Simulated assay, not measured.
Amino acid sequence: MCLAMQQDGLSAEQAASRIYLIDRPGLLTSRMDGLQNYQVPYAKDPSLVESWRSAEGKLGLAEVVANLHPTMLVGTSAQTGAFTQAIIESMHAACERPIILPMSNPTELAEQTPANILSWTQGSALVATGSPFGPVELDGTTYRIGQANNALLFPGLGLGTIVCRAATISDAMFLAGARALASLADPADHTKGLLPQVSQLREVSATVAVAVVQAALDGGLNRVDVDSPIEAVEEAIWSPSYVPLHPH
């Protein structure tokens, strides 16, 4: 996510400043002991967030959402119900179409159910989950819930890598595949969901693979020449076709 924002023109520091990490102690700040190396760039200056604390001295998810007014919420906590109604409604009050992604699995550990998220935002939230959830019926509209599954990205990533015989899989190739997948989303069509269905994996993988090949070519990582990424991917995809057998 940070690298994607850098591709869009932000510096590494600017991108990191827009990401707030909440762990068991609450919002990660630079004065905390035991921060992991990968957490340090995102730890906030305590002096800038001290006023966010609740009357009880808490500086957790609820306090951060109420003061920061974020546009996206990503849950990987495995804490059932961590995205409370108050948190979701606070987020929606400041953002017309919040992106809310309860990614924990299995299903019973999801931070919140899509049905509740959509109900609390009057159907406005953009929702995808880490576990499978069925469609949600709300006020006469059916919302299909997309599952953010590795299967939507990795087959295309592997195919693109094989097609161009990339020397390595770069961050740029990952991001190109992710952006290609995102291009297939249609937030305005509730019946499709925020992500394609796994049943569309063949078409999705081809789209991702083409983008991955192009990113490898742009980065000089290809070990074979590829004149047309689209044609190369189409030629590499195996199609299961069987010749009819006629008994003698």
Rank of each mutant, 00 (worst) to 15 (best):
G81N: 02
N149M: 03
T129I: 04
S54N: 02
D218A: 14
A148W: 10
V210H: 03
P132L: 08
P98H: 04
Q6E: 15
I169E: 08
G123L: 03
H248G: 09
C2Q: 14
E235R: 15
L3S: 02
G123E: 04
G134A: 11
E231K: 13
Y20I: 02
P41A: 04
G220K: 06
L28N: 14
L153H: 10
G140P: 08
P25S: 05
D218W: 05
D8P: 00
P25Q: 04
L138V: 11
E13R: 13
P70I: 03
C2D: 03
P114A: 09
C164G: 10
Q14P: 07
C2F: 00
A236C: 08
L48W: 01
T113H: 09
Q7L: 07
P70Q: 06
Q122S: 12
D189R: 11
S47I: 02
L184T: 01
F83S: 00
A232Y: 09
T121N: 01
N149W: 13
L152D: 03
L157K: 14
S131T: 02
A176I: 14
A209V: 13
L201P: 03
E235M: 12
A211S: 14
D23A: 13
Y38R: 09
L118G: 04
T71A: 09
A166L: 09
N149V: 08
V136F: 11
G57H: 09
P70E: 05
A185V: 02
S119V: 01
Q39K: 15
E137Y: 00
E231V: 08
I19E: 00
R179W: 12
G219L: 04
E96P: 01
G158R: 09
D8L: 10
D33R: 14
G130N: 10
T129M: 08
L73E: 05
A211T: 09
S54A: 08
S199G: 01
R18N: 07
G9W: 11
H190I: 00
G134C: 10
G160S: 01
L48N: 05
V213M: 08
P132C: 03
G160I: 06
S131M: 06
Q79S: 07
R179T: 10
T76G: 07
Q14I: 02
R179K: 15
N222F: 04
A209G: 12
G134V: 13
A167D: 10
S90G: 15
R144N: 10
N222K: 00
M173A: 03
L217H: 00
G26C: 06
Y38S: 12
E89V: 05
